[in-house]
Design a protein around this nucleic acid. Sequence first.
RNA 1: GGCGUUAUAGCUCAGUCGGUUAGAGCGAACGACUCAUAAUCGUUAGGUCGGUGGUUCAAGUCCACCUAACGCCA
Length: 569
Amino acid sequence: MARILITSAIPYINGIKHLGNLVGSQLPADLYARYCRARGDEVMFICATDEHGTPAELAAKKAGKPVAEFCAEMHEVQAKIGAGFGLSFDHFGRSSSPQNQVLTQHFAGKLADAGLIEEVSESQVYSNADGRFLPDRYIEGTCPNCGYENARGDQCENCTKQLDPTDLINPRSAISGSTDLEVRETKHLYLRQSALKDQLDEWIDSKTDWPVLTTSIAKKWLHDGDGLQDRGITRDLDWGVPVKKGTEDWPGMEGKVFYVWFDAPIEYIAATKEWADKTGGDWERWWRTDKGADDVRYVQFMGKDNVPFHTLSFPATIMGSGEPWKLVDYIKSFNYLNYDGGQFSTSQGRGIFQDQALEILPADYWRWWLLSHAPENSDSEFTWENFQAGVNKDLADVLGNFVSRVTKFCRSKFSEAVPEGGAFGEAENALIADLTTKIRAYETHISAMEIRKAASELRGIWVAGNEYLQAEAPWSTFKTDPDKAAGQIRLALNLIRLYAVLSAPFIPEAAAKMLSSMNTLDTSWPDDVEAAVNALPAGHAFTVPEVLFAKITDEQREDWAARFAGTRD
RNA sequence: GGCGUUAUAGCUCAGUCGGUUAGAGCGAACGACUCAUAAUCGUUAGGUCGGUGGUUCAAGUCCACCUAACGCCA
């Protein structure tokens, strides 16, 4: 039994995410976690909300709430949505937790001890009206290059020219609109990633089995231009982890907090501690190689935009600490999911948001389609036609109808119990052999986190059941040899249980319904397929389930396509 | 502007180290079946692999340039 630590990139607290965010990390991570558990591995599956930073403060202000209260509420909203999609986190934490505060300060202290923190003085724009320093993108003004009036301090959106906030004509705060701005000197801490460049480079080189997407992004950051740059890890904000050196104050850094990207990945560890504090579990045996984590395999899931932080910044924090923390063993990264020819857009309300998705269809529909179209090798595309076709064909016609035809036939010709009689012959043995091959391939794909291939293989496993029924035609056999038909249906009923077990990582709700209608708690993995198709013995009672998957109609599709094309109401 | 990714049947995508007639699912056509959610099963028709040139006995698969889309950085 292996021990697997799984983390999904932590979603930002600010608002409800769209489906692209789901398929890029949480959903595949959940698939893998469920699969590992089903195979008997000991799994710790961690996610959290990423709560610090300016956008959270501004969103709270817009909502007219204190930022802590806003984050607490949004955390509950996201937790509820996650549960709605069946995400089986062992713990869904918060980066604003006391545990993360302590750990983040701890890491900063260790990095400072190791000489990997540098204090840098820089000038930054301060807004007197807002009472705060303004990040570049929160300063607006007239572009000196093209005259565009709403240019941002980092770049003019109109002419794309790169700017410094001090270049802007008539600069103003994007938060309050105030023009009462001044440039002040302020001191910040920088993580000396450049000092760890060779160590990181060597480490990345050793990861020969990682997806190209992951390593190529890491390599680019390591070698582009002047190589890996030091990174500012503090900000002049109120909301965040106060800057401390371990448990001690950090002279000159009063009133400052750590940058959100410094404390966010540390939350993976802190969330595990949150879990431990809640359950009495031992978090260090997952994270400290000197305290039992040396046999843990740690896998991270994330979108490609998160890769630099997980391949470089966070490992730099871990390595630089000089302490035996667990480093990631495998990073599975994803490209983007596009919506109907363009991007999902949170700001434009374009595409489908997670809460809306759950309002219109059960989670399994989304899980199946999104996972079977996961953007693994390149960006992939969501269209309503494709979604409708995929869901109707795979779930309703191939799997759902299989369950329906088998259970209803048995009820009408025999009874609502596994029929007795008949013996497995050549056709049954051939099916068992075929399923064995396919199930072993399915295991291989899902173990390798080849999500699409796993989905395709699973579908093939479902199809094999229909092929068998079509070839053996128990409805015909029954007329001349009811005993033989009984054996065929006994096998088919057992396939329903088998399919439930195999499919549960993808479609947990439907799998639960299938098991419940088969009236069994036996979720044992089919290491031996022949044994698995004999699990439900003759005489075992079952019930005919409700329709597992209702089809999406053309009217629904058109209605939804229109509803989600434009602005979110 | 720099860097990177992608471009394969109507659609969504596979194609491992360059090597026999380029694969899958959907969609389409035809056939079989009638237990089932007008579901299922089978057969067939569709691509010369964005363009141009090159390397090679041999290229979708390597190289150069071009085009298009997207992304990252500055």
